[in-house]
Simulated assay, not measured.
Amino acid sequence: MGKTELRNLGSSIIFPLGQKIENEYFRGTVWVETLVSNDSVFNCPIYNVTFEPGARNNWHKHPGGQILLVTGGRGYYQEEGRPVQIIKEGDVVKIQPDVKHWHGAAQDSWLSHIAITANPQKGEVEWMEPVSDEYYLRLKIEEEA
């Protein structure tokens, strides 16, 4: 996301953008800011995650589940074996423990969400294969149909 696009987000991003993620678990540009660290007092890590248009994460599972609070933009959420869902500002996505899923921005929109790791004592996220470009690019066509 360029400086102009970031400026256009303006007050839409209500939490700090955070650090750009550079690893094999994300496609495109994604930023993460830790809002609440995992500790023995709160036991509930919370992150602000912002995806540039077209950015997404790999398929993955959370042993204790996850909750997404969409704070801006538009994107996709999908569980394995189920149709993709369009998510937008104000949506709440409750992901059951050990459900294989992915989420990210639509091709023509940025997406920002709060990611809450539920029951972190049950273990770390298990990262899997990427969502292929071929599959992802078909979503726009299906969305328009």
Results as ranks from 00 to 15, higher is better:
Lys94Cys: 14
Gly64Pro: 00
Ile87Asn: 03
Leu68Gln: 00
Val70Phe: 05
Lys100Met: 12
Pro83Asp: 14
His101Ile: 01
Gln85Gly: 07
Ile87Cys: 06
Lys94Glu: 14
Val92Pro: 01
His113Arg: 09
Trp102Cys: 01
Ile86Met: 15
Ile87Ala: 01
Gln107Lys: 15
Thr71Gln: 09
Arg82Asp: 12
Arg74Ala: 10
Pro97Asn: 03
Asp98Ala: 11
Gly90Val: 01
Ser112Arg: 06
Leu69Gly: 09
Val92Lys: 10
Gly81Val: 09
His101Gly: 04
Ala115Asp: 03
Leu111Trp: 03
Trp110Val: 00
Ala115Trp: 03
Val93Asp: 05
Gly64Gln: 08
Glu79Asn: 10
Val93Thr: 08
Asp108Gly: 11
Glu80Leu: 15
Gly90Gln: 01
Val99Asn: 12
Gly75Phe: 00
Ile86Cys: 15
Ala115Tyr: 00
Ala115Gln: 03
Gly81Glu: 12
Gln96Ile: 15
His113Lys: 09
Gln85Met: 15
His101Thr: 05
Pro97Met: 07
Val99Leu: 12
Trp110Tyr: 13
Ser109Trp: 06
Gln78His: 07
Gln107Met: 15
Tyr76Val: 10
Asp91Phe: 08
Lys88Pro: 03
Ala105Gly: 04
Trp102Asn: 01
Pro97Trp: 02
Asp98Lys: 12
Gly73Tyr: 06
Tyr76Lys: 04
His101Asp: 09
Gly75Gln: 04
Glu79Leu: 12
Ala105Asn: 02
Gly81Arg: 09
Val92Tyr: 09
Gln85Ile: 07
Ile67Thr: 15
Val93Glu: 01
